[in-house]
Design a protein around this nucleic acid. Structure first.
Lengths: 179, 179
DNA sequence: ACTGATTAATTCAGTTATGAACTATAATGC
DNA sequence: GCATTATAGTTCATAACTGAATTAATCAGT
């Protein structure tokens, strides 16, 4: 018996990717190396974190998306948010959010009630006691993962990276919601 | 008639997200603000770029994933790669890659043949003439997207961001393939 | 008040992605 | 040579996600 992990491929060595980007730029000069590299870096980082988080969370019966929803609620002022806030915060489309929350509600981790404040279209999602407990049981593992991401980064470097990424985010948000 | 765009949510304003992360940190001090912010930034950036690219590519009958495969092949030395190289480069799992390439082969954009060099397990994927043509028709739009990502970034800032992201990638790769 | 446009959330059909199992070939050790 | 182990690629069942349509409630202008 084999296959303890997905064979996938050697995702390491971004060097080959860079060589490809360079060649593309040669064949099609308008294609800018720098931007392409950045976008691909972001893509790879996101994919790896996603996979690593999934691997950790699987044994608790959750995936990275579920976790993201739970931690957003955990961080919110009263452990409660509307679906649309939550979707925006977690970067999930509303249709997907409904599905995810259905699952979390079914498992008793999240509560879904009509929003008491006026607007009867709205819904309030909140962590149940069990949701809080599960999340807090998960947090050490996830915290450790985050720590390992930051190995070798000086505080000033983290700040700088954060600042630059925020500007990048500003730019890419303008792509979808133009003006 | 309404709904010209998915309602989704206000993905803008990362500020609320930061407030949540701060609260989480207060309730669970081991949870580091900086790392969490960075990971969520990466997630949001990737999601937005993905959506924007999909919107552009849709009218050509492709999605962002398809495009990524094609551009990898385009950038490779002889417009040809093995599935596993390609999967690694594009950040796709092998099972998914098979499916994607099936589609591209069916549409006559990609050629799939036995790798001529010895190893009979291997397969070679390459761009067809049509694949090259379609890709080159697409590239101006995608190039423009990339350009808009970089608005307001000085060359030195791009370099710095690239360097920092590469280090981050190094760290996150170690998460999945430990040691 | 009433019409038309917006917004919140969900539903739905179709697409895309995942983990595990499987087949076939190649490499390694003995 | 032969057994063991590893790798390349695919298949399959299931899960996750998407865009568009739908329902219901609010809002804005008149």
């Amino acid at each position: 018996m084999h296959s303890r992990k997905t064979p996938a491929a050697d995702s390491g060595s971004f060097a080959a990717t860079e060589a490809r980007i360079r060649r593309t730029h040669q064949r099609f000069p308008a294609f800018r190396r720098d931007a392409a590299v950045l976008v691909r870096l972001v893509r790879h980082i996101q994919a790896q974190v996603h996979d690593a988080a999934n691997a950790i969370l699987r044994e608790h019966g959750l995936n990275h998306t579920d976790y993201n929803i739970l931690i957003m609620l955990y961080g919110s002022a009263d452990h409660a948010m509307n679906p649309s806030q939550l979707g925006g915060a977690a970067g999930e489309k509303s249709a997907n959010l409904t599905r995810i929350c259905n699952g979390l509600v079914d498992r008793g981790l999240v509560d879904r009630v009509a929003d008491p404040h006026g607007d009867r279209r709205k819904v309030l999602l909140s962590l149940t006691r069990r949701g809080v407990e599960l999340l807090e049981a998960l947090l050490p593992g996830m915290t450790d993962l985050l720590d390992r991401c930051m190995l070798g980064f000086a505080p000033a470097e983290r700040d700088q990276l954060e600042r630059l990424l925020k500007r990048l985010l500003g730019n890419v948000e303008a792509l979808v919601h133009p003006a």
